[in-house]
Design a protein around this nucleic acid. Sequence first.
DNA 1: TCCAAACCATAGGAAGTCCAAGTATATTGT
DNA 2: ACAATATACTTGGACTTCCTATGGTTTGGA
Lengths: 139, 139
Amino acid sequence: MAAITAVMRTASIYLQRADAILKPHGLTFARFEVLALLGFSKRGSLPMSQASQLLQVHATSLTNSVDRLEATGLVRRIPHPTDGRTRLLELTTAGQQVLPAARDDLNEKLFARSNLSGTDATEIFEILARFRKASGDFL
Amino acid sequence: MAAITAVMRTASIYLQRADAILKPHGLTFARFEVLALLGFSKRGSLPMSQASQLLQVHATSLTNSVDRLEATGLVRRIPHPTDGRTRLLELTTAGQQVLPAARDDLNEKLFARSNLSGTDATEIFEILARFRKASGDFL
DNA sequence: TCCAAACCATAGGAAGTCCAAGTATATTGT
DNA sequence: ACAATATACTTGGACTTCCTATGGTTTGGA
């Protein structure tokens, strides 16, 4: 019980910090995650459905984030060549510029100063990985 | 980095489960926390300001939760006897009935089946307690 | 004393999450 | 071939969180 509370508090602290760091880049953590995912994908484009699965977020939440990313010109929705239902997400050139800057900033200010020792971090990761696996949250 | 992501995912899984469990009781996790806090306080009433500090949540978020709790008749706002600025929160009799039922249900369905072994839970709690202390999140 | 600074709570607005429904497109079975 | 089913995404609504700003109350210093 105390452990669950601690996890929730910690998550909210990290989220607030991440949002504060990303604000000057015109991003929130949720939108950063979308950008980062697109940056990872080798083809450079992903269907909404796949992106929402990988981010472990509801399709509607992703629609929301993408609406805002599209409004600020960082990503683009393009039609799928063969399936009329799906849209592909793609970074714009603006998005390609913003992403590395935001990522570096986040790495430097959040991850490097996370107040977690290396062993603590691996410890936590392993325990929570077990938990998530047992909960069906595929990694 | 992976550790931070794991913490966030885990928190969101727990939050969803807690909300699902509390739904039949007409509660969300945020509102349950308010009720639980009032149940703990020995005098049975707390100023908004103090409650928001203890819950580590913004005053405006608490106002929101309390609005809904008051609308469903589980808590009451009463004036402070000597300080005209502050309002005291108090459980209604309905609130006093709902709280133990919700708490038992949550204990049984969430905490007991948390997919965390006892040692894992204490391990996590201790690591995160160190982190929160270092981050100024007083326990 | 009394005016300014501090404090308490609330209102309004932006963002995120989810769920339940709806629309459009594919796929499948008869 | 055509109706039934399934999939992909969006819309609308409920809820939480935060921030900024505002209206009342204390309280403390000139």
